[in-house]
Computed example of a mutant assay.
Amino acid sequence: MEKSLFERLGGTDGITQIVDDAIDAHMNNPQVSARFLPYREMPEQLALVKKHSVEFFSEGSGGPTKYSGKDMSIAHRGMNISPAEYMHVLDDILETLDKHKIDEGTKKDVLSILWSLKDMIIAQ
């Protein structure tokens, strides 16, 4: 029997490490860092963003954790995220998956989920 996406991402621990590294990558990416660097001065908000990201990917990949955050459209309302920024974030996530030695099939599954969210996030 094939492993779930949740299992292939390393379960809660693996997803947590991926989220931490992806957010670090966003903070170091000059194309999107302005959106993420302010969280360094708001550690409680950063912890909440990470918590919601872990929950979102856990639930969305077949894990046991339920997402407790806002709907994607509501969470990104007023941010006016451009298509280019969205692509930079996706690139950071894919590079993070490479860093964690995630296989190509699993990366494609993650990309499919991220791509399905595009219209809920861009230009909201």
Rank of each mutant, 00 (worst) to 15 (best):
D24N: 10
V110E: 04
S58I: 15
F57A: 03
P64C: 09
R35C: 00
A84P: 02
Q124N: 06
I113D: 07
T16K: 12
F56P: 00
L114N: 10
P38L: 07
G105W: 01
M1S: 10
D103I: 10
I23F: 03
K51R: 15
V49H: 04
L5P: 00
Q45K: 15
S33E: 11
S116C: 07
I15A: 10
E59Q: 15
L97S: 01
E2V: 14
N28Q: 12
M42T: 07
I121S: 00
H52W: 12
I93L: 09
I15K: 12
T65P: 10
D103S: 07
G10W: 08
L90A: 04
L48S: 01
E104F: 08
D119N: 12
V89Q: 07
I102Y: 08
S116K: 14
T96Q: 03
K107V: 03
D24E: 15
T96S: 03
K50Y: 03
Y86M: 06
D20K: 13
L5H: 13
H76G: 05
N28V: 00
A123R: 05
L48C: 02
S68R: 06
I81M: 11
K118R: 14
Y67M: 10
I18S: 05
S68K: 07
S73Y: 08
E55Q: 14
K50N: 04
T12C: 11
Q45Y: 12
I15W: 09
T65Q: 14
K50R: 08
R8P: 01
L5E: 09
G69P: 07
N28I: 00
Q45A: 07
R40K: 13
L9V: 14
D71A: 09
G69S: 07
Y86P: 15
E85G: 08
S116V: 09
I93K: 02
K107C: 02
Y67R: 08
L97G: 00
E7T: 14
S68I: 12
E95P: 00
H26Q: 04
M79R: 11
G69Y: 08
I122L: 05
I121M: 10
E2A: 14
I18G: 05
N29Q: 08
D20V: 06
I23Q: 04
W115E: 10
Y39L: 14
S61M: 15
D21R: 12
E41D: 13
H100C: 01
A123S: 03
A84K: 12
A22Q: 07
D71L: 08
K50H: 04
P30M: 01
P38F: 01
L37C: 02
S73T: 08
H52A: 01
H100Y: 11
T96L: 05
S116H: 11
D13Q: 13
Q45W: 13
V49N: 11
L111V: 05
E7G: 03
V89R: 02
E59A: 04
K66A: 15
M42P: 00
K99P: 09
T96D: 04
S112A: 11
G14I: 06
D92C: 02
M79S: 09
I74W: 08
K99V: 04
P64K: 14
K107G: 01
T12W: 13
V49Y: 09
I74S: 11
D103P: 05
S116Q: 12
G69N: 01
L117H: 02
H52L: 04
S116R: 10
L9G: 13
D13Y: 13
I122T: 06
R8F: 01
E59G: 08
K99Q: 09
L37Q: 11
K101I: 03
A84Q: 12
K108I: 08
